[in-house]
Amino acid sequence: MNGKIIAFFDKMQKLDRRYIYLMVALSIIIPLVIPFNSPTFTSETTENIYRKIDSFAGDPTKAVLLSFSHDASTMPELFPMEVSVLRHCFERNVRIFTICWSPAAAPLMEHAINTAKENYDVTSGVDYVNFGYKPNSLFLPIVLGMGEDISEAIDTDSQGRKIKNLDIMKEIKNYDDMNLVIDFSGGGAALSWVTYARAKFGVNVAAGITAVMVADYYPYLQTGQLIGMFRGLKGAAEYEKMVDVFASYETDEYPNGRPFSKEVIKNVKVPITKSTIIYIEDGVEFDTGIPLNYKYKVARIGMNAQSVAHIMIIVFIILGNIGFFLTRKKDNL
């Protein structure tokens, strides 16, 4: 009996790795092609960013800066975050700026804005401005310069317009107004914002990072140097849900979305298999009729695949180790 089990695991141990690869591929392709509903639990690190941005809603004297410090290789994780933050800002009428530091990021930034704005009536120069690509060697001068005067530090936007002359800049001068910076990167770029802009001018800094960096960033979250953080794809999925539940919400009482509430987000479900945003609260369905486009749920669909893959890997580790111990026992005999 024992021998049989050991033999089985022995065989399993020697399983051709290509079968494993195939399982990995399927565990990701199937959930992507056939989406299913799974709950998205939000975490405080992401909620903090949402709440901060939401507190700027409709206020012409406040703005958010998105800094794109990454290239295409980390796009799967970071792009959904960027789109949902932009969507949140467009929904809630929050003024927004974007900037990037490498030539490779410029097309990604453009792409994120265009993806998010398609369904909103927003104008460049009024609701948002793309500062465009600024060479990395100018990072420090610009980050410090914006503490004094944004329009001088940046000078022109991606279309070559003088920032100073734009409508959006009327009541926005420096970090006192542009009070939140979110840096998206696969590395330590947000920490430079913490070191310079946060330490010197007290601006709020949040980070959108790939999961690899999460453990490294945690100490900064604890000291409050970072106000919030998107933890990889999971963070993006959480934000997508919050935008659906709060920012997209439209009733007579709240024509432009309702304010964030921890109690609400806990209880509401938004199924991603539907083509419109539907709230399910305590079993009661409410169809808002607002289209839920693929681009707004891409992270949540991705998280389905992620869940399946995680479980699979955990199972692999456990199976592998059982086999390992059994065979070791056999060797010791």
């Binding site: 990995v24 990701i28 992507l32 290789s73 980390t74 799967p76 994780e77 790939t210 999961a211 690899v212 990889g232 794809l233 999971k234 991705g302 695949a305 992620q306 893959a309 995680h310 890997i313």
Partner: peptide, 8 residues
């Protein structure tokens, strides 16, 4: 998690 996200 990050590696799987890239594959996704």
């Amino acid at each position: 998690m990050a590696r799987i996200s890239l594959l996704i």
